[in-house]
Design a protein around this nucleic acid. Structure first.
Lengths: 252, 252
DNA sequence: CCTAAACTGTTTATGTCGTCAGCAGTAGGC
DNA sequence: GCCTACTGCTGACGACATAAACAGTTTAGG
């Protein structure tokens, strides 16, 4: 168990919070003031510190006071830079997304598989480095920052040589993040502290109810859940690429 | 915005909470007492009420006191049936999973595509009916209940005719829930209340930064994000099935 | 039958959280 | 130099999960 991640909104408003506020924040589109004392912080620095805290202690550990404490200021000071916690989490996501993937020179048609592969691997790396991303992005209707858009743009660009239309490219993109996120969740589970204990209990439970789950029992006997050197990410990626290839091939 | 979902664990222990407790709860493996007053509730009924509340008002609205209030008892009464909120959420998930998918008669080899398709559609239906499932299952190291296992078992069974080995079947299963969850998230986003407002703001933002996201701009002009009658679930499913087919075909 | 143990639900209390309101100090523009 | 926009702070509030102690209820065992 330990550190299960979670984000709440609490209270009741949040409905009144202006969508434009967080967008302006994400896109850096707000005029900064000239008068008054020099600000000690910036939204960026706050988000970076919060992300680091989440890396270290999980998303649950990210509270306004803890983040503020890291800067030696009071919790309420943060509200001068960030409308609320929800927005802070979105800034954290954006922060951690980095500058986007580094893509190989696309070149000719045949190389699109490599490009998509590169995109997927790098995206998976981000999720692996920041397990809380999974929970943080499981919220509804997140605001899109420029960095998230850059990732999306890169994926769509990599898919251009396939000749798929825009809608199809977008759907392939959805398949890819779905894969990445799912593999990330799997890995996060496995790296959990008491993972071995849970596995043992589950195995025991399954053994006692084997007849209720014949296919599962058979699959386990056949090597499921045993690490076999094949990365689930690579396997899934190959399946998706093959599937895309089938569409292309079937059409021309 | 409104009702963003979230689950927390709070306090600090939870590390001390016995994994066997929640497993016994999920599997109904606890001897019930004979002495003392008749219990007013059961874990099942509590979980069902909590799930209904989550359906109506979102996972955030599920608090111990609200759930207890629905039964006319105090919040602390629930702790006689459930170790804590974390475990309640796991019971909610299990509750909502139902009896598992109804699978067609598998019959001969050729029908496995239909079986997998049926599984995926039904799984997607569950997620569509209970949007909070996405958040509730985004936690780390969830305990597996019999119903979740039944879904897993059914998927693996549907994949048996493919001739894939156990590890591969498991990986295909991962691809499938990845797809289902991702599509569910997409749809939840779209059904959000102020969805149109967000779309408008995003479009405006993108128009102003079009040159930074050429592929995205092109894709949108090419019909991405426009509903075109093709269900993203079906599209993804076809790609995955084609990918699986490619493995089978390539091997024999 | 009667008592003690097991079990029920309740009240009270603690600590953490996000966030509102109001304050005192600061610094640039007039 | 003063007004004003800004800073960060303290205090308060309500919601939450949950620990602890208690009072009432049922049944098993003598």
């Amino acid at each position: 168990m330990v550190e299960r991640d979670g984000v709440r909104s609490k209270g009741q408003q949040d409905e009144t919070r202006d969508p434009r506020a967080v967008l302006a924040l994400l896109w850096g589109e707000q005029e900064q003031p000239t008068r008054g004392p020099k600000p000690k912080l910036t939204p960026r620095r706050i988000a970076a510190a919060a992300a680091e805290l989440a890396d270290r202690e999980g998303l649950d550990a990210v509270s306004m006071s803890k983040v503020a404490g890291g800067f030696g200021v009071s919790a309420m000071a943060l509200y001068r830079y960030v409308p609320g916690k929800t927005e802070l989490v979105e800034l954290m996501v954006e922060e951690v997304m980095g500058e986007g993937p580094e893509m190989p020179e696309s070149g000719e048609d045949g190389r699109w598989r490599e490009a998509v592969r590169a995109w997927t691997r790098q995206c998976a790396d981000v999720y692996a480095a920041h397990p809380w991303l999974l929970t943080a992005t499981a919220l509804r209707r997140r605001a899109l920052g420029p960095r998230q858009l850059r990732w999306l743009d890169a994926a769509l660009a990599a898919l251009e040589p396939t000749g798929l239309d825009g809608a199809q490219r977008h759907r392939v993109f959805l398949l890819l993040i779905g894969l990445v996120r799912n593999v990330a969740q799997q890995q996060a589970d496995h790296e959990e502290e008491q993972s071995a204990e849970w596995d043992r209990l589950a195995a025991d439970l399954l053994a006692r109810h084997a007849e209720r789950f014949p296919a599962l029992t058979k699959a386990i006997a056949d090597g499921a859940f045993q690490p076999d050197g094949i990365d689930p990410l690579e396997f899934g990626l190959d399946r998706i690429l093959d599937g895309v290839e089938a569409v292309i091939g079937g059409r021309e």
